[in-house]
Write a protein that binds this DNA or RNA. Structure first.
Lengths: 265, 265
DNA sequence: GAACAAATGTGGGCTATCGCACATACAGAA
DNA sequence: TTCTGTATGTGCGATAGCCCACATTTGTTC
C-alpha cells in the first residue's frame, strides 16, 4: 500500500527548490489524509488546486520553534512529530501527526508560530498548502473550519495524555504507546527508526529505549534489527501499553468520527 | 482588590440551586476576566445579559471527565485546574485557568466533552454562561471567535510545556513554576493550598512537595504555614523556576496581547 | 573484503523519587 | 481548654532512570 502510493506520486513529480512537488494532485491521493477525506466533494474540489505533494526525508524540519509558517501540511504517508527543545538541549515529543491530521494548526488558531519544532519522524509524503490559502478556506466557516477545530481538540487530548504519561508511566509502557501511535499512522509493520531517535521523542536516554525494546522483543511483541523495529504482536503491544494509548485512540474516534488506528484505516 | 470584588459580588447575590448567582453583572465586573475585557464594548454588552456570577469553593468540580458541559465559565477571582485522573487513581494537572481564560473550550471546539476534570484550585468567583449562548456568540465569527481560538493556542502551549516539564525537571523547579502560575492568577501573595493538594496537581508524593517547599522557604523565597504558602520573593521564585514558566508567560503575552502575570495585571 | 561510522549492547555507580511508616504540630469544634 | 482530625515533618529501604564509559555488532563505502 505504502509502496504503491509512493510510486504513483513519484510518477507525477517535478523537482522544485529541493522538494519534489506533484504537478497534479488527484482526489484519490488527497483522500489519503483523513481530514481532507472528510470534506464534501465540492469543498475538496475547491482545495485541490491549492495542494501540492511534497516528499519528506526522515529528520526533515517543517518548522523550527518560533518560525513564521508559510505552509501547512496534511501528511499522507509521512509522520510528523511536534518536538519541544529545552535550553539544555534535551528534547521531548508533545504530539504526533500522521495522515489523521494537519501540521500547522497555529495558522488557523491565530498564533502564527508555536514553541515547538515539527520534524519528520517517518519519511513519506504530505500535501502542502500555502498559509494564506488555508486561512482563506478556514475563514469561510464551512466544514473545514469545524473539522479543524475538532481536530484541535483531539490534538489537545493527545498532548495532555503525553503530559500525564510522561509523569506517571515507566519507559516500557510509554514505548508501547509510542510504537502504537506510529504503527497506526503507517501502512507497514516495519518502523524505520533508531533507538536514539525514539529516546529523543520520549525524552529519555537511548539506553533506556534499548533496554525496553529488548524486554518487548523477549515477550514476542516486537522484533529489533539495526535501524528498524517490527511490530510482531499488535494486540500484545496494546495490552502492554499504558491506558494512555487507548484513551487517545478512543477520543480521536469520538471527536473526529474515525479511529486513529489501523483497525479502521 | 480581591476582598473588595468579593464584597461587591456578594451584595448582588441571590441563592439559586446551591450556587450564589448575581442578579446583575456590571461591565466593570465582567472586565475582571481578561478575555472578556478584550472584547469591544458592543460585543461585551451583548454578552453581559447572558453572564451570571458564581462563587466556587476550593475543590468544587466544574466538570467531571466525560461530562456533557451545560455551561462555560470565565474565572474572575477563582482558579481552575484541569486535572487528569488515571485508572490507578493518581492525578496530574495538565493546565490552569484563571481570570486570563475560559473553562469549557471544548464547547466551541466541538468535542463537547473532555477527558479531564475541571476542579477549583483556589476559591473565588467566575462568570457563567450557558453552553448554547456561548456557542451562538462564537458562531457569529466576531472578535470572541478569534479570541477564543488564540486562547486555545495559548492553552495548548501551557499543556505542552507541562508535558515537557513533567519529564525533564526536578520537583523543586516544577513547584516554583506552579506557584508562579497560581500567583499570577491571584490578587494576593497568600496561596491557600495544602501540600497534598499541590502533590496531586504535580503528580508527585506529598512528601516531595513538603521537602521542596522547605528548601524554597530556607532560600527565603516563600514562607510556609499550615494550609497556606506565601510568596515572599517573587523575583527569586522566578529565578528558581525552570524555563517553562517564562516560556508560557511570554507566549500568553505574545498570542493574547497581555501577560499572564501580575506584573501587568 | 577492509575500513569506517553508526547503531546497539552492557556494566557500574549515582540520584531523585517512590512507598511506607510513623512522629509531631496546628486549628477548629466541643 | 481539651479533643480530634488534618497537615506537616522525618526516616529508611527500594528502584527506575540517569550519566559515563566502553565493547560489540552491522551496514555502507571504497
Amino acid at each position: 500500500m505504502l509502496e504503491s502510493l509512493r510510486t504513483i506520486f513519484h510518477d507525477l513529480e517535478i523537482e522544485v527548490a529541493g522538494n519534489f512537488v506533484a504537478a497534479k494532485v488527484s482526489q484519490e491521493h488527497v483522500r489519503t489524509n483523513y481530514l481532507l477525506a472528510s470534506l464534501k466533494d465540492d469543498d475538496l474540489e475547491r482545495m485541490i488546486p491549492k495542494l501540492s505533494v511534497v516528499d519528506f526525508e526522515l529528520g526533515a524540519v517543517l518548522y523550527e520553534a518560533g518560525d513564521k509558517m508559510d505552509f501547512a501540511y496534511f501528511p499522507t504517508t509521512a509522520i510528523v512529530s511536534l518536538l519541544y527543545i529545552m535550553e539544555s538541549g534535551s528534547t521531548a515529543e508533545i504530539g504526533v501527526i500522521g495522515n489523521d491530521g494537519i501540521v500547522g494548526l497555529s495558522l488557523v488558531l491565530g498564533g502564527e508560530t508555536t514553541t515547538n519544532r515539527a520534524v519528520v519522524q517517518s519519511a513519506g509524503t504530505a500535501l502542502k498548502i500555502r498559509a494564506a490559502d488555508l486561512k482563506a478556506e478556514f475563514k469561510l466557516g464551512n466544514e473545514l473550519h469545524h473539522l479543524l477545530l475538532r481536530y484541535t481538540q483531539a490534538l489537545m487530548t493527545q498532548i495532555s495524555q503525553t503530559a500525564v504519561c510522561n509523569r506517571l508511566h515507566p519507559i516500557e509502557e510509554q514505548l508501547c504507546r509510542w510504537l502504537l501511535l506510529s504503527h497506526d499512522r503507517l501502512h507497514t509493520d516495519k518502523l524505520v527508526m533508531t533507538h536514539d531517535l525514539i529516546s529523543n521523542m520520549l525524552g529519555v536516554r537511548r539506553e533506556g529505549i534499548t533496554l525496553a525494546a529488548q524486554k518487548l522483543a523477549t515477550r514476542g511483541l516486537i522484533s529489533n534489527s539495526r535501524g528498524t523495529m517490527t511490530v510482531v504482536d499488535r494486540d500484545g503491544l496494546e495490552d502492554a501499553a499504558c491506558e494512555c494509548y487507548g484513551v487517545v485512540k478512543t477520543e480521536y474516534d469520538r471527536i473526529l468520527g474515525w479511529r486513529a488506528s489501523r483497525t479502521t484505516a
